[in-house]
Amino acid sequence: MSLKGEGLGFYYKKDKWIFNKLDIKISPGEVKGLSGYSGCGKTTLGKILAGFIEPQAGTVTVDGAPLPRKGFRPVQMIYQHPEKAIDPRWRMRQVLTESFTPSRELVEALEIRGEWLGRHPIELSGGELQRFCIARALNPATRYIIADEMTTMLDAITQAKIWHVFKKLCAARNIGVVIVSHEASLLKRLCDSVIYLEDVTAKGSAA
């Protein structure tokens, strides 16, 4: 049981590998940090693990099976800019219930207010929108979550509050988490172990 990337390789320009022969493994309930220079491929690796882009080499498996191409994705991704991950023409109620109807406890834990549900995304702040992205990622079928700079644009108090709830929720459901960030102090707080991608690209294995 684990989210496994084996022999992963990716390039935008032919033969200019951003990374290659990269192995990575995340167990259920594990919290793994992913750090490195901007442009070193952190987000790209996250997208590959979530199945949003295909690597040029290697395979990704979830608990032994390849990533499903249809239906719900067991590996969910939460982005740095929630306003870019939400349909601007939907109301927040639709955003929240797109994949499932979150329980009242979940909605309350994330401090999502009822009055927000009738609004459009532009009428909420980044921190408020990010709560919806987290809620919808916590579908009962979710096994792993990639949190890509999830709280970078938030103030310290909101950041601490969101991680506090998120950590608890993931631990309770044994969800494996990859936290992408270049803030060392944050990773130190949250992760069991941290991978530095620029070291890995030199050597190959991240497991």
Binding site: S103, A109, A160, W163, H164, S185
Partner: peptide, 19 residues
């Protein structure tokens, strides 16, 4: 800040956050 107490101030939040 993660360098300081981080989420300690929410640790005693009782029911809130417990799901």
């Amino acid at each position: 800040l993660p360098e300081n107490d981080f989420d300690l101030m929410f640790a005693g939040d009782g029911g809130n956050g417990h799901v």
